[in-house]
Design a protein around this nucleic acid. Structure first.
Length: 298
RNA sequence: GGUGCCAUAGCUCAGUUGGUAGAGCAAUGGACUGAAAAUCCAUGUGUCCCUGGUUCAAUUCCAGGUGGCACCA
């Protein structure tokens, strides 16, 4: 290992035991944990996001957990800047920092960085969402063909979020989204080691089901009820919350809502696995093999 | 006990005027640089309940059986 400090990233699908491994390693290396979970930022969402309890944290400082309100706006770029500075601070006192989480895009933001793109004005965003709402996706496709034909050729034309984003960037600059999105691999002043946690799909499924039942026992319905007034916010467009809203609306039974949470969590885990699979720099372990992970790190 | 209806994919169901079959959901694979626990794309899945009859050919028609539902008693 060079003179550089190191960032150890613990990643993997939901319910793969990242929390436990991260805390264990943080104690072993006497350092702190940076969470990288796009839903654990929100202080009002605790049970449904399976946030670690004080007891589970075992006194290890955690950053980016419950640090935002569901009403706050947040994005990868903001996380990149803030997390980088937190890592720098941790590295002042330790050779290691640990990041743990399952949000692939945010992990990429830390490892490789993301382009500094112009911020669209609220008017631009409003204009585009109205265009989409009133004229459908074909209006967005037409506009993109006009503004950035190169991106038009490679985007998923059915994915309105991708179209909306490309358009808002184009409209906020003289350049096209394609020209601005250079995807540079930003150099980081530290080494990065990625530890992936995974297990048999059936085992993950079992853990997801068990964890969901536990959330209900801990009072998930009550937590969601208290957030009902915020249900239209992005933060609440989250597995575990939207299904309970359906139950509160009387659209489904509680049993059905619980089943839906389990199904949607399984699908979420599958998407995470797909995302991480293509990253060949990840070293995979079973979460129970904590000793093997320690051996690997030394 | 009687009558009627139903039995098809893991689930809910459609369909075949007789030539061995689809949809949705699930599942699986994939994409993804400012909403990412989001959003989007692709792909299968079968003793068509059992036994016999009619027929060149039955998942389809007929009879019986089994199971389910409804109504009557």
């Amino acid at each position: 290992m060079s003179h550089k400090k190191t960032l150890i990233i613990i990643l993997g699908p939901t319910a793969s035991g990242k929390t436990g491994v991260a805390v264990e390693l943080a104690k072993y290396l006497n350092t702190e944990i940076i969470s990288c979970d796009s839903r654990q930022f929100y202080k009002e969402m605790q049970i449904g996001t399976a946030r670690a309890t004080e007891k589970e944290m075992q006194g290890v400082p955690h950053h980016f957990v419950g640090n935002l309100s569901v009403m706050d706006y947040y994005n990868v770029s903001m996380f990149e800047k803030e997390a980088l500075s937190t890592i720098e601070n941790i590295h002042k006192n330790s050779d290691f920092a640990i990041m743990a989480g399952g949000t692939g895009l945010y992990i990429n933001g830390i490892c490789n960085g993301i382009d500094d793109l112009p911020d669209p004005t609220p008017e631009t965003k409003e204009y585009l969402t109205t265009l989409y709402r009133e004229n459908g996706i074909s209006a967005l496709q037409d506009k993109l063909l006009e503004m950035d034909s190169a991106y038009y050729k490679k985007v998923d034309l059915n994915n309105h979020k991708r179209l909306l984003r490309a358009l808002e960037v184009c409209m906020s600059s003289d350049k096209t989204y394609t020209e601005l999105k250079t995807s540079p691999k930003k150099e980081r002043p530290f080494n990065i080691i990625k530890i992936g946690l995974n297990m048999e799909r059936s085992e993950i499924i079992e853990r997801i089901h068990h964890r969901t039942d536990l959330m209900i026992k801990k009072g998930l319905v009550e937590e969601v009820k208290n957030l009902e007034k915020h249900r239209d916010l992005n933060a609440l467009n989250t597995v575990g919350y939207k299904e309970i809203f359906e139950f509160l609306d009387g659209i489904t039974t509680l049993e059905r809502a619980i089943e839906n949470i389990k199904t949607n969590t399984r699908r979420y885990a599958k998407r995470q696995i797909t995302w991480f699979k293509r990253d060949e720099s990840i070293h995979w372990f079973h979460p129970n093999d904590i000793q093997k992970i320690k051996d690997f790190l030394s």
